[in-house]
Structure formats: C-alpha cells, structure tokens
Amino acid sequence: MTPGADPTSYAPQTVPPPGETLKETLEVLGIPQADLARRTGLSTKHINQVVQGTAALSPDTALLLERATGVPAGLWNAREAAWRTQLAREVEELALSEHLGWLDRFPLRELVSRGILPDRSKNVRNLRRLLDFFGVVTPDVAENVWRGYQAAFRRSSMLSQNEYATATWLRLAEREARERDCEPYDRAALTALLPRLRELTLQKQDAWSVELPQLCAQVGVALTFVPALSKTNVSGATRWLTSDKVMVALSDRFKTDDQFWFSLFHELAHVLLHGKRLTFMDDRDNLSPGKRHEDISEDEANAFAADVLLPPQHAAAYQKLAATRYLSLTAIEAFADTAGIAPGIVVGRLQHDRIYDWRQGNGLKRKVTLG
C-alpha cells in the first residue's frame, strides 16, 4: 500500500496468490515441482496444491521453501497472509453489499460535513468507513453495541427522534473524549471545583470554552463540546470510559447559556451521584425540573444542577425577586450580579418557575454555538 492510502479502499485482485509466486520462482531456478518435493520432503501432490492455491502455504512449509529455494520464509508467509486477507476482503465485500440500506438510516449530509464520510454515495466503501467510525464489524454488531446503552436511550425521547443520528453524536463525543488527556478521576476535587465552574457562567464563550475543559480534565472529566445533529434532541451525555476517566459531552441543541450551563451541572450530577456502569443521555424532557421522571436519577440531577446554579443562600433573595410585581430586566441583572451568575440563567429559572413567560427576558440570555 502506498503512503497515505486509504486502507478501507479495497481494490480486488491486486495481490497474487503465493502459489503463483512459487511457480515463477521454480521456473527461474529451473527446479521442477517433483524435485522440490524431494528437496523439502513434501509430497508432489502437496507442492502442486500450493502452486494451484488449493492448499495454504503454512509457516512450516515456508521454512522448508526457504531451505530449498533460498527465498526467505518471511516472504512466503507475507504472500500467504496478503492473499488470504484479500480473499477475506472479497467475502466481506459481498456480505456488506447486502447491508447498503443501513446507510439510509443516517443523516448522510451531516456525516459528510463532519468528515465521517467523503460523500453521500451508498456503496460498500462508505459502509465500511461508517463501521470503522463506530469501531464495529457489521451493522448488526453496531446495533447490539447500542443496545448496551438502552438504559440511557430509555430515559429520553431520543429513540423516537433518530437513534442513528443520536448514536453518531455519542460516538463523535466518545472519540474526542478518549483523545483528551485527563488526570485520574477525583470526586472530592470535582466537588470542590463546582463553585469555580459556576463562576465561568459570567465569562463569554471564547473564554469559558477554553478554560472549562481544562479545569474538568484536572479532575478526571473529559469534557467535550459536540454540535448537535439534526433530528436529535440530545443536550448532553455522561459515560465512564475507564474507572478513572469519565466523558461528559454537551451539545448546543438549545443554543442559550441557561440551557447549556444547566445541562453541564446536570451531567456532572450523574458523575458525582450515580454509578459508573450506566450511560446517561439527556434531552429537554430530562432537563425539566419538577416533571415526574421515570428514573429518579434524572430528578436528582435536576435538583443538583438547580442548587449549584442558584445555591440555597440566594433562595430568599430569589423569592423576593420573583415576587416583584413589575419585574424588570434591570432587577434581574442586579440580582444576578449579587448572586455571581449570568443573568440569562436567572431568566431561565424565572421562565421555568412561570414567573416570566418563555418569550420574556430572552435578551439577557447569551447564545451558545459549538463548532
């Protein structure tokens, strides 16, 4: 293979069978097959089967051929391995051609824009590329792997949206998280870090988008920002990659800072409060405080996020603000300044508590766009 060649771009019939090489070698050396059989102690029938490709050229035979022909055993072994690999690829090519319809289940345009596929062609090359992206061998295996996430998928409405787009988003996040260098997970250090993470809500995105992942990496959290794909409602995900490293992935599905920061602390709640065996994937439904969830862990994560963003020591002042008859944006900004938090987050809380209509106060929210 030439340098930089794509290993998934298989061109058939490019590797000669080892028997053909053996036949050419014997012709050059002037050694008949019967003479080679005598020299190696193998039967003439077996030598002919190797030449014809009906018998494999084993390592033992390669060593005998080295003695009789002077051609290194390593070369014979390499030719045999290359040939058998090519045959296996041809079988795989035929099998994969029956699964091209699997590509139709994915948002191909976005897979191309994210660099997962080179184009939207529905061919074996692209199917193999997609399987390589997921790190699996067949579509059936991929879906079996996703069933391992069923506890997470069941907690949200994401399956009713697009399971395949959601799985793609999660895989993008996982690959990025595995590349991120992190210190070993430290629960106490993460807990102590929460006030500092809360302070970052006051910064602009170009500042916190750099500092936030760095701080999280210091306590064993691989924080990744993955832009949302269409037909998905995913806002965040938590998955333990090892016992000492946890992935927290956030999307920009809802585009505003109140949603983004609530999602962050919701995911960190899963890290701190819940087990290391589950994968949590969250959407708008899971991020709805006060809604009865099927899984109590979502209620716990929501309560945790709410308390981090608006700690109990600010509860009385918030209640006073919420009780104001004619609530102004200036009053919200003053409270946010006292509480040390972004005013858009206060607006989001007021909207959730139905003090504000969902259309009110949005000018105080900051836009969050990833990627």
Rank of each mutant, 00 (worst) to 15 (best):
F304Y: 11
A11M: 07
D186L: 01
M1I: 04
K122D: 08
L197H: 01
T2M: 05
A306W: 11
A88T: 14
N162L: 02
L36A: 07
L364R: 03
L370K: 10
L131Q: 12
P17M: 04
M158I: 08
R128P: 06
L130G: 03
L202P: 07
V246T: 14
S157Y: 08
A207H: 14
N144A: 08
V271F: 01
K276L: 06
R67I: 08
D285R: 11
G275C: 09
W358K: 12
R354P: 06
W146H: 08
D295M: 07
T8I: 15
A68G: 02
Y10I: 07
A222L: 05
P195N: 01
H99C: 14
L321W: 06
K245G: 08
Q218D: 15
W169V: 01
H293S: 02
H266V: 11
V15G: 04
G74Q: 13
W146R: 14
R147K: 12
D257M: 07
D283E: 03
R125E: 10
H274E: 08
F280T: 04
A228W: 05
D282R: 00
A207Q: 15
L200E: 06
L370D: 06
D186N: 14
A237D: 03
T54F: 07
P7G: 00
A152D: 08
L268V: 10
P59E: 06
T54C: 03
P139N: 02
V145A: 07
N144K: 12
D353V: 09
M1D: 05
R79M: 11
A34Y: 01
Y149F: 15
D258A: 12
E199A: 11
A315N: 11
V246S: 02
Q49I: 06
I296D: 05
R125H: 15
V234Y: 01
A73Y: 06
R359N: 05
L350C: 04
V51M: 12
V221R: 02
V346G: 03
S113N: 03
K204C: 05
L194P: 00
V50E: 02
L278P: 09
P18I: 04
F133Y: 11
W261K: 09
E163Q: 13
A331Y: 00
A55F: 10
F304N: 05
W358G: 00
L264I: 13
V248K: 06
A322R: 03
T69G: 04
L96T: 10
L287Y: 07
H99P: 04
Y326H: 15
A56K: 06
P289A: 13
R67A: 00
S209G: 07
Q13V: 08
T330H: 12
P72K: 02
L273G: 11
L197E: 03
A305H: 03
A37M: 09
L197W: 04
G30D: 07
T369L: 09
K255V: 10
L65K: 02
K291C: 04
N77L: 13
W76A: 01
C216G: 04
P118Q: 06
E163T: 11
A316G: 10
L215F: 13
R354E: 15
L130N: 05
S156Q: 03
L65D: 00
R114Q: 10
